[in-house]
Design a protein around this nucleic acid. Structure first.
Length: 992
RNA sequence: GCCCGGGUGGCGGAAUUGGCAGACGCUCAGGACUUAAAAUCCUGUGACCGUUUUCGGUCGUGCGGGUUCGAGUCCCGCCCCGGGCACCA
């Protein structure tokens, strides 16, 4: 047989699987279901890097294993293909994004197929396909048609809200009478309840990208994509009311099999705070604040509003701000260049705040602010307290206003000191220690007539009761999470299925108008005017519609102009963010070609109800908050609206760890080229473009601040000394040793295509899994790939033979044994049977280990177990064919191409190995009859003694005490007691 | 600053429930095959000490303490690394 040659066998089996539809999934089956899902990729222009196949290989192993265990397995793949990078690239190269996207998808798919993943490609989804985004738009209309009922804690159809309003069971906010309203006014009221609504709000506007970004897409005041500066600007935007589901999103986490750290990240993001809402009187109005420390109400010495707070609005007829400074207003309260009036001071401050980017606001936390000229009344003691505005109070959180308690809050403390405001302590440490202000922890209340002497927790409860009874406040839970800014001023996304009517109201398109296709445009560049690119789509932007359905809640159908009752309307010109398509793709895989529903209910029920949700979802931790929170939100709405049968989409979730580049050694040299030891180098490097086009990494010498320059060092010039690496030739020079995240600029990206070319897909798969635990960060190593490649080569040699190494496979046919077609004589047969017998226990142990390790996703140890078994195959004269087939079956999920080929060689069968069931192991064959038992004396290893595994405590002790070596180690000391752990070890406890 | 996760040979890692620390692989060294090299196969590879081969001993899982017959594993205190959040009242 020829040597192991992955380049010939891998394409052969990939073709076979595709042609035979080997991995087709039944939409509904009598078999139990198993849904194992990968986070679908964004098909970037760069193609795959070795990080992608890590999670994909893990899920593929599980998928192949579960199929062998008799499950109907859903294991699909698709493309999250809308989004910024393709559009940016399209703009740069003047190609249409759909062309770029199609090309990238083809590249990704051929790369994935070359790795031999067992996806059911007939279920592939593409978020940019109108047949797909039709349903993304449909779900948007569902969100638009849903309101959140706080009483029932669930989303309900808008029609039921109308019912409640018209029956009088519920009163619309603002105290209006539903019955007296016009249809248009009713529509305006309903818009305030819909889960999809519009809001004029300060948004993160990124001039370079020409779009608004979600809070989550802004990192350190710069855009996550591209790293461009982001500024705040007011703009009308579509929002999704995710805050209504905050409680549900929080509660739902408990039942999920996610890592605790991931759940915690989501909990922190949602950010629940228990506290109270308290009403202060100011300028004849109620000013509400949210506080988590109502027990410090008696310590309030001033108030602060966000600069955007409605009370300090200077436009319109009802300005509350006084025209002149109250007598005695200190100079320092009047703004930077003391303003002549409070209104001037506020206007100037508001302008300054708007001009400050998010980044500046985060970097510079020095307190600024101006006095509003207003005084508020503290409801608990009647104190008159000044009201300020300051940008340390955020408009979007709580009520956008705070009661300031400088004695017990660091920010208020800092502000009070700056503005010379009184600081009144009302909590002292419980242990009687000298209070150091600000005291932000709990303690004992004092100077607080209603709650003096109470500990903080009791004081909070007590004061809430009093506030509620007096009608000046109430308990309240506030969430940090904001509503989700859902619109983008870009071309390459789903158009909103929405039209704007001349009366200013907004109507969703009727279902049969979907999909609303993205218009073909040659000029899809951002406009620079904050108008979306779709504004350049000409006739597409303007339509005539007929309203159908109930007058308060109609849908729009596009009709030719001049049709009776047609209204001229304007299309919504924003598009949806990239997250939209990924919020529900896991449902579309179940029924990808359905044109009548996003998914057939019976199919959904089969896959998503028992056990509930996706059985295993694997992806990168970078999606820990955003994608996973958004998808859960949509799923919960779909659940409330009866479209899915599980409350949560992803029952079990695994984050694969990042794969870093190969370990690198870096030596720093000064300008003269003299090596500088790392001890003397600032660990914060910076990079800049070097003269040769590559990136030059630069740092500073600590001793004199001079610039030093990084240069790579070959591993063989370096020696490890404990925690540090030094130059072999100059051991006093320490070099930097670490692995870096793969990036194009660093030039350490490993392309899976190259690995496949040199070692084959099976080696790639095996090494991806052998590197270490799935969830851990691990450095890549080509030498390691070579290691697993050698392992596969040895398996091949053992089972298929080689030119210099004939096959030793012994086959049992009609009562006789054959080796290479020749029957064995009696003696040879006996020897062969003996060799089979000697491999029996190791084989069963290997089956058990591989089975258990796949179940617990410990793929690296499963591979070790197979390596250990393979290491036993070199010595015997003969190998039993059936035993070897069992071994090949175990190998299949990991190295499927080689396993298929070996199966064919061993059996001659033309069928796929994947049709064979997973091998069973016999527990009694996993344990040895005799054990070389470690014996300890006082917990230290003193020797070993052979015993029978079945022996009782007494028998073992007798045998051990009879052992000469143990006797000499005991040296006659009297034994106090012994501890025997069956089959594991024996500990003798003696004096001394 | 706050909240998580983690520190085991030269390297990646193993030890599933408190019970033989270092499985498996890489690296390196020696040997076989070869005219030679590569590939392949075999042997060894935590540190230190003694015998200087067989063998035996001591130490050893970031550091310091504790619990236990027994600790990589549990508890307390520190150090370092990685990740997340960060004016959220």
């Amino acid at each position: 047989m020829a040597a192991y040659n992955p380049a010939s066998i891998e394409p052969k089996w990939q073709k076979f699987w595709l042609e035979h539809n080997t991995f087709a999934t039944e939409s509904i089956s009598t078999k139990p279901k198993y849904y194992v899902l990968d986070m679908f990729p964004y098909p970037s222009g760069e193609g795959l890097h070795v990080g992608h196949p890590e999670g994909y290989t893990a899920t593929d192993i599980v998928a192949r294993y579960k199929r062998a265990r008799g499950f109907n397995v859903m294991h699909p793949m698709g493309w999250d293909a809308f989004g910024l990078p393709a559009e940016q690239y399209a703009i740069k190269t003047d190609t249409h994004p759909s062309v770029v996207t199609r090309k990238n998808i083809q590249r990704f798919r051929s790369q994935l197929q070359a790795i031999g993943f067992s996806y059911d490609w007939q279920r592939q989804v593409d978020t940019t396909d109108p047949g797909y985004y039709r349903w993304t738009q449909w779900i948007f209309t569902l969100l638009h048609d849903t309101w959140f009922d706080d009483r029932q804690n669930r989303g309900r159809p808008i029609s039921e809200l109308i019912e409640e309003f018209s029956s009088g069971r519920r009163q619309p906010a603002d105290g209006v009478q539903w019955k007296t309203l016009s249809d248009a006014d009713r529509r305006r009221i309903l818009e305030k309840y819909r889960l999809a609504y519009q809001l004029e709000a300060p948004v993160n506007w990124c001039p370079a990208l020409g779009t608004v970004l979600a809070n989550e897409e802004v990192i350190d005041g710069k855009s996550e994509v591209g790293g461009f500066p982001v500024e705040r600007r007011p703009m009308r935007q579509w929002m999704l009311r995710i805050t209504a589901y905050a409680r549900r999103l929080l509660d739902g986490l408990a039942a999920l099999e996610w890592s605790e750290s991931l759940k915690l990240m989501q909990r922190n993001w949602i950010g629940e705070s228990q506290g109270a809402r308290v009403r202060f009187a100011v300028a004849g109005e109620h000013l509400e604040v949210f506080t988590t420390r109502p027990d410090t109400l008696f310590g309030v010495t001033y108030m602060v509003l966000a600069p955007e707070h409605p009370l300090v609005n200077l436009c319109g007829p009802d300005v509350k701000i006084p025209a002149a400074w109250p007598a005695g207003t200190p100079e320092t309260w009047r703004g930077q260049n003391p303003a002549p009036t409070p209104r001037a001071a506020i206007a100037a401050y508001q302008l300054a705040t708007a001009a400050r980017s998010e980044r500046q606001r985060q970097e510079d936390t020095r307190k600024t602010g101006v006095f509003t000229g207003l005084y508020a009344v503290n409801p608990v003691n009647g104190d008159s307290i000044p009201v300020f505005i300051s940008d340390y109070v955020l408009a979007g959180y709580g009520t956008g206003a705070i009661m300031a308690v400088p004695a017990h809050d660091e920010r208020d403390f800092e502000f009070a000191q700056l503005f010379g405001l009184p600081i009144r302590p009302v909590v002292r440490p419980a242990d009687g220690a000298e209070p150091k202000l600000p005291l932000t922890e709990g303690g004992i209340a004092f100077n607080s007539p209603w709650i003096d002497g109470l500990a903080t927790d009791e004081a909070k409860n007590k004061i809430c009761e009093i506030l509620e009874s007096k009608g000046i406040g109430s308990r309240e839970v506030t969430y940090r999470i904001r509503d989700w800014l859902f619109s983008r001023q870009r071309y390459w996304g789903e158009p909103f299925p929405i039209v704007h009517l001349p009366d200013g109201t907004t109507v969703a398109l009727a279902d049969d108008e979907l999909p609303l296709r993205l218009p073909e445009m040659t000029d899809f560049k951002p406009t620079q005017t904050m108008e979306p690119p779709l504004s350049k789509a000409g006739a597409w932007c303007h339509v005539h519609v007929q309203l159908i359905g109930p007058a308060e809640n109609p849908r729009a159908r596009v009709v030719p102009p001049g049709t009776a009752g047609a209204i001229a309307a304007r299309r919504e010109l924003n598009t949806m963010p990239q997250w939209a398509g990924s919020c529900w793709y896991y449902l579309r895989y179940l029924d990808p070609h359905n044109t009548g529903a996003l998914c057939d209910p019976a199919v959904e029920k089969y896959w998503m109800s028992s056990p509930a949700g996706v059985d295993m979802y694997v992806g990168g931790a970078e999606h820990a908050v955003l994608h996973l929170l958004y998808a859960r939100f949509w799923h919960q709405v779909l659940f409330d609206r009866g479209l899915v049968s599980s409350p949560e989409p992803f029952r079990k979730l695994i984050n694969q760890g990042l794969i870093l580049g190969e370990a690198e050694y870096t030596l720093f040299r000064d300008a003269a080229g003299k090596p500088v030891s790392m001890d003397d180098v600032d660990p914060e490097w910076t990079s800049r473009p070097g003269s040769d086009g590559k990136v030059q990494f630069v740092s500073r010498r600590r001793s004199d601040g001079a610039e030093v320059y990084a240069s790579p060092v070959e591993p063989d010039q370096v020696e490890r000394r404990g925690d540090v690496a030094v130059l072999k030739t100059e051991p006093e020079i320490r070099v930097d040793a670490r692995s870096f995240k793969m990036s194009k600029s660093r030039g350490n990206v490993v392309n899976p295509d190259d690995v496949i070319r040199d070692y084959g897909a099976d080696s790639l798969r095996l090494f991806e899994m052998f590197m270490g635990p799935l969830e851990q960060v691990k450095p890549w190593s080509m030498a390691g790939v070579e290691g697993v490649y050698r392992f596969l080569g040895r398996v091949w040699r053992h089972l298929a033979g080689a030119a210099d190494f004939p096959s030793r496979i012994v086959e049992h046919r009609s009562g006789r044994y054959y080796l290479r077609g020749q029957p064995l004589n009696e003696e040879q047969t006996r020897a062969a049977l003996e060799e089979r017998e000697s491999l029996l226990r190791p084989l069963h142990r290997t089956i058990r280990k591989v089975t258990q390790d796949i179940e617990r996703l410990s793929f690296n140890t499963a591979i070790s177990a197979m390596m250990e078994f393979n290491n036993l195959l070199g010595k015997p004269e003969t190998l039993d064919r059936d035993q070897m087939l069992t071994f090949v079956r175990l190998l299949e999920p990991f190295a499927p191409h080689m396993a298929e080929e070996l199966h064919q060689i061993l059996t001659g069968a033309a069928r796929s190995l994947t049709e064979l069931p997973w091998p069973e192991y016999d527990e009694s064959l996993c344990a040895d009859d005799t054990v070389d038992l470690p014996v300890q004396i006082n917990g230290k290893l003193a020797g070993r003694v052979m015993i029978d595994a079945g022996w009782a405590d007494g028998e073992v002790l007798a045998r051990v005490l009879a052992d000469e070596r143990i006797q000499s180690r005991l040296a006659g000391r009297p034994m106090k007691k012994h501890i025997y752990v069956k089959g594991r070890m024996l500990n003798l406890v003696v004096q001394g």
